[in-house]
Amino acid sequence: MSVDLQAGYDKVFDNVLRLRIMSILMVNESYDFTSFKELLQVTDGNLASHLRQLETAEYLQVAKSFAGRKPLTTYTATATGKKAFQEHLDFLGALIQKSKL
């Protein structure tokens, strides 16, 4: 096995909520705050803090707009975020391979 397991490990995906958020953004062009909250069943504060951490890591982009009078915040995965997620998947795959040997 030539895969460097330590190098592939991404701290950002250490938290299950951040992992779930990125999983959703990988298969949806964009996703809004309320829909995240309903699907993930978490509080506003908790969700906002993890979204902010992903934004700081430049894994996602935020766009604010209005739907009628209500503010609508939508999130999109960046190229960096998608690449990091793919690498995390490869890392998990390598771990499974390794445990089978």
């Binding site: 299950v16 992992l19 999983s23 959703i24 298969v27 771990l95 499974i96």
Partner: peptide
């Protein structure tokens, strides 16, 4: 950290539930 198999299952379930 969780077992990689569980983590992959978690990712798959989230992808399904958010698109289907």
């Amino acid at each position: 950290m969780k077992k990689p198999e569980e983590e992959l299952a978690e990712i798959k379930s989230m992808m399904e539930r958010s698109t289907r």
